[in-house]
């Protein structure tokens, strides 16, 4: 693999992302909403005379859970299928570059564009919070941004996998949106219903919910900010008592798995496919 080639392809991908209206729209929505959210929680900080970062962070977590998967899944889903449909992928592969280089370059470029988007959202909201004394510890804020970025990478990997498995751009986008719905709503609602009807133990409930990378992100972020999972009731307290600080490693490992495994699967599919 040639690093220069990968970097060049990544830059091309980044430029494409900056031209992609959907991507810009998602970024603008994320920045705007996080800004609005920080304004709203500032009203509270004034009353309390106290850094309301806990609630700001909670609002940001909620926002991230909605928008970041949507952004990363659609961007990932568009990547291969869309270019294949346009014919640019075939043109690219006809050049003396390996499929590994194309894949790595694409992934790197998309990852960088997501980093820009996440950094912009957190950064602008952070300026507002800091100026008006509404923020808490800076380390916690950076931690939250880092975890958000990891979540966006996981969703990007899943999106790219969907793209690699789809023949057409529209199908890939549809698949990505369906997965978004599953991760954000259907999975949790289904699990809530299952917990109520099957009377799951808190341990089973915890581990079933951890299959969802969004829940992994949420718990890791809460653990960062509050240092405990009290917020999550009995299951959170069970997790703290059973695993303690090892939870951080567990969360990181699960998130790494969600980033690496779908990306590898997508690469394998991309290698095997004859029609690209």
């Amino acid at each position: 693999m040639n690093i220069t080639v990968i970097w060049t392809l990544a830059q091309k991908e980044l430029r494409d992302a900056l031209r992609n209206r959907w991507f810009l729209l998602y970024t603008a929505a994320f920045v705007g909403l996080s800004l609005a959210l920080s304004y709203m929680s500032l009203a509270g900080a004034g009353i309390a005379g106290f850094a309301g970062f806990g609630r700001t962070a909670a609002g940001l977590i909620n926002l991230v859970l909605l928008i970041i998967p949507l952004m990363a899944l659609t961007v990932g889903a568009q990547s291969l299928a869309h270019e294949q449909e346009q014919g640019t992928l075939a043109y690219l592969l006809a050049q003396p570059v390996t499929r590994a280089e194309v894949f790595a370059g694409k992934y790197l470029g998309l990852a960088m564009s997501l980093l820009a988007s996440v950094g912009l959202g957190f950064g602008i909201a952070g300026v507002v919070l800091a100026i008006s004394d509404g923020a808490g510890s800076p380390a916690a804020y950076v931690g939250l941004m880092g975890r958000t970025y990891l979540l966006s990478l996981a969703m990007l990997s899943v999106g790219v996998l969907v793209s690699a498995m789809s023949k057409r751009g529209g199908v890939a986008i549809g698949g990505g949106l369906f997965l978004w719905l599953t991760f954000v709503f259907l999975g949790d609602l289904g699990l809530m219903g299952t917990a109520l009807t099957m009377r799951l133990s808190v341990g089973q409930l915890l581990w079933l919910s951890l299959l969802n990378p969004l829940q992994v992100f949420k718990m890791a972020a809460i653990l960062d900010i509050n240092a405990t999972l009290d917020l999550l009731g009995p299951a959170g307290i069970y997790a703290m008592q059973e695993y303690g600080q090892r939870l951080r490693i567990i969360f990181l490992a699960l998130m790494a798995a969600w980033i690496v495994l779908p990306a590898l699967a997508a690469y394998a599919r991309f290698q095997m496919r004859g029609d690209f």
Binding site: F185, D188, M192, A195, S209, L231, L232, G233, G236
Partner: peptide, 13 residues
């Protein structure tokens, strides 16, 4: 069912 607090902050809620 206090164990459902696990879903706190989820958009599903």
């Amino acid at each position: 069912y206090p164990e459902l607090r696990l879903f706190q902050l989820s958009p599903a809620v």
